[in-house]
Each structure stands twice: as C-alpha cells, then as structure tokens.
Design a binder for these strands. Structure first.
Lengths: 220, 220
DNA sequence: GTCTATATTAAGATAGAC
DNA sequence: GTCTATCTTAATATAGAC
C-alpha cells in the first residue's frame, strides 16, 4: 500500500514529491474544516500557491485527492493502534495512547470525524473506506480487550463484543464533543469507561437494596 | 420560538403551509444523506416538484432552509428527552427511550449526525446551534443521572459530570456506528454503559490479584 | 404561490503552450 | 511541473410575468 504513486515520481522510485505532500497536508485541513463537499479544488490550489490546473496535475480528480489524504494518515493511527493495542504490556493503555495522540492533532481528528460523517451516504467516494475502517477499529479494540481479559485486567464476564463497540463509539463521540468544546477531557472520559471494565475493587456495596435496571427496550 | 414563520401564513395565524412542511421533510433527507454542503437548492426543488425560484419563495436562502429543518425537529427530541429524563419514574429509562426512538428514524439521526459534524467548522451556519445543543444534551443527561443517584439507582460515588459526557458521546458515536452498520444494537450498547453506573451487584470478585489501571496519560 | 428567464459566480475538468 | 485559457455544468440568488 502507498507504493506506486502514479505519475509523480522524480527519481526512478521516488515515492512522493515535495509538492504532493504539501498539497495533501493542506487538503487535510480544508476537508476537515469544510468537509469534502464543502471544499473546492480551486480553494486548495489557491492555498498551495498553484493554479487549479497545476493542482490537477498532481491529483487529476477531487476523489483522487481525498483518497491520497485518507491513505497518507491511515498508516499512522492504524499501525499505532495495532501495535499499541497488540504488543503493549497493558493492551488498554494502547487505546488511551491513541486518544492522547489525537488530543494533540485537531486537524487530523476533524478530518476523520467530518469526512466519515459525510461518508455515511452510500454514494460518497469514501463510504466503503469508512465502513471498513469502522469494522477494523472495532476488531482491534476487541482484540485488545480479549488480551486484557486473559491478563486479568478486566472482569472475566465482560462482553468483549459489546465493550469493543462501546470503545469505538465513545472514542468517536468524544472527538466530536471535543471539537465543539476543546476543554473536553477525552482521555479521562475514555479512561472512565475502561475503569468500568476493570475487576471490581473490593469496595463495600454502599446500598444494595434496589439494583434493578431499566428493564425496557433492551431488545431493539 | 417557532412563532412568526414569516411570509407564509395562509390564514391570519396559520403557522405553516402544507408546502413548507413538505419541503422541510425532503430537505431533511437531502441534508442527512449528502450533508448541507453537498446538497443544492435545485436538488431539493426538483424533489418537491418546484422550480428553484419556487423553492426560494418559501426559503429565501439555503441557510433559512437549514434553520427551518433544524427547528422543525428540535422540539421533538429535545422535549422528549427533557420530559423523559426529568419526569420518568426511572430517569435512566428516559435516555434509552430516546435511543429507541432514534433507532426507528434513520433520516433524522443521519441529518443530525452529518450536519453536526459539518458544523464543527466555526463558519458553518449551524455551528452555534450545535455547540449549544451539545451543552444542553449533556446538561439534561447530568440532571437525569443526579436524579438516578438520589433514587439509589446508580452508585453514590459516580462522577455525574463525567458520566453525562460519556452518555452524550456514546449516544453520538453509536449513531454513526449504526449508520454504517444497521445491525448495531444501539439500545443494548447504551444500556450496557448504564449498567456500569449501577450499584454493584453482590458478585464475588473472581480474581482480585491485580487491579491496577493503565496509569499513564490520564492527565491530558 | 409559482413560473420563466437571467445574472453572477464558481464548480470540476481538459487542451495545449511553455 | 506549472501555466493560461477554456469548456461545461451547476451553484445561489434576483426580476418580473402570470
């Protein structure tokens, strides 16, 4: 993947021109702030100091540019998450590490958040990409949680399928909350969820008279 | 609010024409599927059988139409949430009730999800609306949780500020997960979080040898 | 209340010079 | 590798007839 960047190699196997990378960086900002639909190629071209035709030399279509933006940053979080989740001593720390990372990169978070929401539409050029990505992230989370169960870090009766989906959803939702309110403590709030997965600390149950649950529509 | 729909009253105090409502309904679908930026007024006009100028009679600008779409549906979930959370016997059931509702209205969920993500940009016409809305939802959740604490439904030591933010974020994230994968059990996954808030059931701790937590970047 | 016609601006994309 | 110039289509919006 990310091999054969067509038509832009300088040397025999130069993978990416300087310009190409500059354009991708700027496009990431624009797509993040205004969305894919809300951003024009002219706008990006202007930002890079190129003419629109000059931009189109590097990325013949708008979709090509979006794909390049997605690919350029997909390696980082994906690999980071994979390695962190799978090989960290504490697999749960791998998840929080991803969030710590995100908290220092607003542009990236905003791009993935906004474009993935747009990509909810089946006709969006990145629809397939984000649907698949969602599955992958959930699977990575489940793997980390299973490992945590084995290591005795979380309750043995934890439903890892549910917990993994919760982690993915919470991570996403916290990012949006944080984008609207940068004072949001994404890391702490996520950690709070993980704490709920932990083996119960020997705390005396303060009042166990009525532990019923809202027993309604759980079946939807 | 929602009084004085300017220029479209038939009778002396008719609040909304039939056409107006039809347009709003269709715009909700379009904005949901393609986003605000990705949808044109011509498109919506075509969908209603009007010409573009005909549409502009009812909504002079695109922003006016977005505002109307937002207002038209804001009453429903807001009031529903407020009443459900505040006056239900079990305040937690009020939250799940909202999700049950959402699970049967994809168009609505998609519109709020996609447009709010777009509105992350400060220049987006609905930016202020969604930033405020986020705060309101969190506050409603906190109110419900506080009530639940009083009723002994959840742990006394629960951090309601954290929990409320978690609820809002999870609800949002689950909606996106569900939009990409309609088999997602939003209700069950949300309920699972609430279960974690409950007073601990008297379950014997299976293995309490090592209950340390990932003690890293919680301070970000 | 809805139309046709039009103004203006901008979109994505191509051709071909340099 | 980048430009100017241009094509084609479509965007928001207005004017004014019916």
């Amino acid at each position: 993947m990310a091999a054969a960047r067509n038509g832009t190699r300088r040397g025999p196997y130069a993978k990416s021109s300087h310009q190409r990378d500059r354009i991708i960086e700027l496009a990431l900002d624009y797509f993040g702030q205004q969305g894919y639909h809300g951003t024009s190629m002219r706008e990006i071209a202007r930002g890079t100091g190129l003419s629109q035709a000059g931009l189109l030399y590097h990325f013949p279509t708008k979709t090509d540019l979006l794909t390049a933006v997605l690919e350029s940053r997909d390696t980082l979080p994906e690999v980071a998450a994979r390695s962190a989740v799978e090989r960290a001593q504490d697999p749960l720390a791998g998840m929080t590490a991803v969030i710590v990372d995100n908290a220092s990169n607003r542009q990236l978070v905003q791009m993935f958040t906004v474009v993935s929401a747009e990509a909810t539409d089946e006709r969006h050029p990145a629809h397939g990409y984000f649907r698949q990505r969602s599955q992958i992230v959930i699977a990575l989370m489940r793997a980390g949680l299973e490992q945590a169960v084995e290591q005795g870090l979380v309750r043995r009766d934890l439903n890892v399928d549910y917990a993994a989906r919760q982690c993915q959803a919470l991570m996403y939702g916290l990012q949006v909350q944080w984008l609207f309110d940068p004072s949001t403590d994404m890391v702490g709030l996520f950690q709070h969820l993980l704490d709920g997965f932990a083996v119960p600390t020997p705390r005396p149950p303060p009042d166990a008279k009525d532990s019923r649950r809202a027993a309604d529509a759980s079946g939807q």
